[in-house]
Amino acid sequence: MLLIPCPWCGQRDEIEFRYGGAAHVEYPADPETVDDATWARYLFVRPNPKGPLAERWCHSQGCRRWFNIVRDTVTHQIMRSYRMEEAP
């Protein structure tokens, strides 16, 4: 049971949140101009590192805001929590 620091509400149990996978995945600026392989990368390929990962969570049972954290996928330690508009 992770303890996740919501930048708006503070530390809350994982069960209050919804996971959103890797953060900072760029939506193609003009999807119509990219080729199938590039589009498929956007759709299906996400970072899956063994170690620190910037990822998105939504405090769905709380303030319902999306935000980012940096979490280590081996230790589950959370190093950083920041709002969507903050720089990675």
Binding site: G20, C58, R64
Partner: peptide, 13 residues
Amino acid sequence: LDWMEEWLQTEWP
């Protein structure tokens, strides 16, 4: 609702 909020907050803030 989750879907809409996700796009709104993360892609079209």
